[in-house]
């Protein structure tokens, strides 16, 4: 069995270093926000993880379409990897968002369009995983998975729009505070560095995880192939 390619090993290490630097920038380097205080530092990772979640969401939808066109199981693997990564990172986003919201808005949860859409994506992913679990035939599992990610990829933006519309027509009292973090917060120079570095670092981490997960899937397939050979 092939050992891990050197490029991937290097990327693993680079990702770790980038994560460490991003953490330093967010927690130490960036100045403390005047109004919100230290809890604002959550913001850097909150946005960066959401970004990774979004990358995974788009990647899953695209590989789903490619799978339906090519019927090549390789793309099913890519799709599944993207879904799993996106699931984990959106979850972190939501948790960080809650940690932030508690002291600032005095509530663990707000029905903000972005946060709500992210949690609906999570529900779609959970449904996706349950759907796959209920199907034995790998080809059918892949086809149904691809169809469902495609349907999800189209419906989530519409959901986002409808939640937006829902709130703009029926504004709630603290809407001024509730508007997204990025808009209300003026980022100073050092904050910007921490912010964009976190985005960059997490993009690299996304690629690294994606690569590792796809490789894991390929190894899994190989093991199953060998098992079948032994049984015959």
């Amino acid at each position: 069995m092939k050992s891990k390619p050197t490029a991937l090993k290097t990327l693993d290490i680079v990702s770790l270093i980038l994560l460490a630097v991003a953490t330093y920038l967010a927690l130490v380097f960036a100045p403390t926000e005047r109004v919100m205080g230290d809890v604002q530092r959550v913001f850097y990772f909150h946005v960066a993880t959401a970004w990774v979640g979004l990358l995974g969401f788009v990647a899953a939808g695209v590989s789903g379409v490619i799978y339906l066109k090519t019927q090549n199981l390789k793309w099913d693997l890519v799709e599944q990897a993207a879904v799993e990564i996106s699931l984990v990172f959106f979850f972190i986003t939501i948790v960080l968002g809650s940690i932030w919201a508690r002291p600032i808005w005095n509530t663990w949860w707000t029905w903000d369009p972005r946060l709500t859409s992210a949690s609906i994506v999570e529900l779609i992913y959970l449904a996706y995983l349950m759907l796959r679990q209920g199907i034995e035939d790998p080809d059918r599992r892949a086809r149904f998975g691809a169809v469902y990610t495609l349907v999800g990829a189209v419906s989530v933006p519409i959901t986002f729009i409808s939640i937006r519309l829902f709130r703009s027509i029926h504004p709630i009292l603290d809407s001024g505070q509730n508007a997204g973090a990025g808009e209300t917060m003026g980022l100073t120079g050092d904050m910007k560095i921490a912010f964009f570095f976190a985005l960059f670092a997490f993009t690299v981490i996304f690629i690294d995880l994606f690569w590792n997960r796809i490789r894991l899937g390929q190894l899994q397939q190989k093991v199953e192939q060998l098992k079948l050979k032994v049984m015959e």
Binding site: I120, L123, I124, L126, A127, M130, L131, Q133, G134, I135, E136, R140, F144, V147, Y148, V151, G152, S155, I158, T159, I161, S162, I163, F166
Partner: peptide, 27 residues
């Protein structure tokens, strides 16, 4: 059509359907 072809079909449909159908319900 997908959910009836799964092992867990009795419970699968609402789980698959509701997150997708949310915009219709809201609107």
């Amino acid at each position: 059509a997908m959910s009836v072809q799964t092992r867990t079909r009795d419970v699968m449909l609402p789980i698959l359907l509701f997150p997708i159908i949310l915009p219709v319900i809201i609107a």
